[in-house]
Amino acid sequence: QTTIQVRVPYRVVGLVVGPKGATIKRIQQRTHTYIVTPGRDKEPVFAVTGMPENVDRAREEIEAHITL
């Protein structure tokens, strides 16, 4: 297991999390990772935990939302 920090712009935190957390839950299920969402007043950084290859996939999925 490994944990990485995925930093995103403030404006996309809501996009990545999705309505009621649906998007981030879907990313967690698809990539078999555990993702901690940043709090409102915190740095916009997601903490992604899982097997290294799964963590990389989750990071790619999160980063895909940044380019939307």
Rank of each mutant, 00 (worst) to 15 (best):
V16M: 08
V12P: 00
Y10F: 11
E60N: 11
I27H: 01
R40T: 12
Q28L: 04
Q5M: 13
M51E: 12
A64T: 09
V45H: 04
H65W: 11
I24G: 05
Q29K: 12
E61R: 05
E43Q: 08
P52H: 02
V36H: 09
A22Y: 01
E61N: 02
V12G: 12
R40N: 09
I27Y: 01
Q29C: 08
G21I: 07
Q29S: 08
I24F: 01
G50Y: 00
I27Q: 01
Y10G: 13
V16A: 05
A22P: 06
P9T: 02
R26L: 09
P9R: 02
V45F: 05
V17C: 11
G39L: 05
E43K: 06
T33N: 00
V17I: 14
A22K: 13
I4H: 02
R26N: 07
T33V: 04
R26V: 03
Y34A: 13
T33G: 05
I35W: 00
M51C: 12
K25Q: 12
K20A: 12
E63C: 07
H65S: 08
H65V: 15
E63K: 08
V16C: 07
T67V: 11
I62L: 07
E53W: 11
R40E: 12
I66A: 14
V13R: 10
E60L: 11
K42W: 02
A64P: 07
G21W: 02
V48P: 07
R7C: 03
G14S: 11
V6C: 01
R11N: 15
Y10I: 11
K25I: 03
P44C: 01
V36W: 05
T67K: 13
V12Y: 14
Q1F: 15
L15P: 07
H32V: 06
K25Y: 05
R59C: 08
G14I: 07
Q5S: 12
G18A: 06
F46A: 03
G50E: 04
I62G: 02
G14P: 13
V36A: 12
I24H: 00
Q1G: 04
R59N: 00
I27C: 02
A64I: 06
T23P: 01
R59Y: 06
T3H: 00
T33L: 08
R59T: 02
V13H: 04
I66S: 11
E63V: 03
T37Q: 14
T23A: 04
V55W: 10
K25M: 06
G18K: 04
Y34L: 14
E61H: 04
I27F: 02
V45E: 08
T37C: 13
L15Y: 12
F46K: 02
V55Q: 04
V6D: 11
I62M: 06
F46C: 13
V45W: 04
V12L: 15
T49S: 12
G39M: 09
I66H: 01
R30P: 01
I4N: 05
P44I: 01
K42Q: 15
L15R: 14
N54V: 04
V12D: 12
V6I: 14
Y34E: 14
R59V: 05
R30S: 11
T37G: 09
T49L: 02
R40S: 11
V16D: 01
R59E: 00
P19A: 10
T31C: 06
P19R: 15
V48C: 01
V16R: 06
I4G: 04
P38D: 11
I24V: 07
T2L: 12
R11D: 15
E53M: 11
H32A: 13
P44H: 00
G50V: 00
T67A: 15
A58Q: 05
V13P: 09
I24K: 06
E63D: 03
I62S: 03
V48H: 01
V13E: 01
P44M: 00
Q5T: 11
R26K: 13
R59K: 13
G21A: 00
Q5V: 05
T2Q: 10
Q29M: 08
K42R: 12
V8G: 05
D41G: 14
T49W: 09
V17T: 03
F46N: 06
E53G: 10
D56G: 09
I35C: 00
D56A: 15
V48G: 01
V36L: 09
V17E: 06
I62H: 03
V55K: 10
E60H: 10
T2Y: 11
T23R: 09
I35H: 01
P52N: 04
A58F: 09
T67S: 13
K25V: 07
A64R: 13
L68I: 07
P44W: 00
G14Y: 00
T23W: 05
G50F: 11
I35G: 00
E43V: 10
P38Q: 04
V13N: 07
P38K: 04
P44E: 14
A64K: 13
K42V: 08
R7N: 04
E63W: 14
G18M: 00
Q5L: 12
H32D: 13
Q1T: 11
D41L: 05
H65F: 15
P38N: 01
E63Q: 12
T2E: 09
V36F: 09
I4D: 10
R11A: 14
V8N: 08
T37F: 09
R26P: 01
R40I: 08
G14F: 03
G14T: 02
Q28F: 00
Q5K: 14
P9D: 02
V8K: 04
T2F: 08
T67R: 15
P52R: 10
P19L: 08
E43M: 04
R11F: 13
E60I: 12
E43F: 01
V55S: 11
Y10C: 12
G14H: 07
Q1D: 03
P38L: 07
T23L: 01
I24S: 06
R40H: 13
E63T: 08
K42D: 14
G21L: 03
G50W: 05
V8S: 03
T67F: 05
E63G: 01
I62Y: 02
R7W: 04
L15W: 14
A64Y: 08
K20E: 09
G39D: 14
T23M: 08
K20L: 11
Q29G: 08
V6Q: 08
Q28Y: 10
R40V: 11
I24T: 08
G21D: 00
Y10N: 15
I62N: 08
G18T: 01
D56M: 15
I27V: 07
A58S: 01
R30E: 11
D41R: 05
M51S: 15
N54L: 04
R57L: 07
V45L: 08
A58L: 03
M51D: 09
I27R: 04
G50M: 05
E61P: 04
Q28I: 00
F46R: 01
I4Q: 12
V8D: 10
N54E: 04
G21F: 05
V17K: 08
E60Y: 11
T33A: 02
P52F: 00
A58P: 05
H32L: 09
K25R: 13
V16Q: 07
K25P: 01
Q28S: 10
L68H: 13
T67P: 14
T31E: 05
R26E: 12
M51R: 12
I4K: 04
I66G: 08
T3F: 04
V48Q: 00
L15D: 03
E53N: 05
T67D: 13
D56E: 15
H65K: 11
E61V: 01
A58Y: 02
I27M: 08
G14A: 12
E53P: 07
T37Y: 07
F46I: 00
V55E: 02
R57Y: 08
D56T: 12
D41N: 13
L15C: 11
I4A: 06
V13G: 04
E60A: 14
A64M: 05
R11Y: 11
V48Y: 00
P44T: 06
E63P: 02
P52K: 15
V17R: 09
R57V: 01
G18P: 01
R30T: 10
R11P: 13
K20Q: 09
T2G: 08
T49Q: 07
Y10L: 13
F46H: 07
G39P: 11
I35D: 07
V16E: 02
T49N: 05
V55D: 01
Q5N: 11
T67I: 11
P19S: 09
Y10A: 15
T33K: 09
V13C: 00
V8F: 09
V8R: 00
M51V: 08
V36M: 12
F46D: 00
H32Y: 02
T2A: 07
E60M: 13
I27K: 00
T31K: 01
E53Y: 09
P44R: 03
T33Y: 02
D56S: 13
Y34H: 15
G14N: 05
V36R: 14
Q1P: 10
T23C: 04
V8L: 06
V8Y: 03
E61D: 03
E63F: 12
I62R: 05
P52T: 10
P19T: 10
K20P: 01
A58C: 08
M51T: 15
L68R: 14
T3Y: 04
R57G: 05
T67Y: 10
R40Q: 12
R11C: 09
V48D: 06
R40A: 11
N54W: 01
P9M: 04
Q28E: 09
I35P: 02
T31H: 04
E53K: 09
H65D: 12
T31W: 02
R40K: 13
I62V: 02
V12N: 08
P52C: 11
G39T: 12
V17M: 13
I66V: 13
R26M: 11
T37D: 04
Q28V: 00
G39W: 04
R57T: 01
V45C: 12
T23D: 07
T2D: 08
G50H: 05
E43S: 04
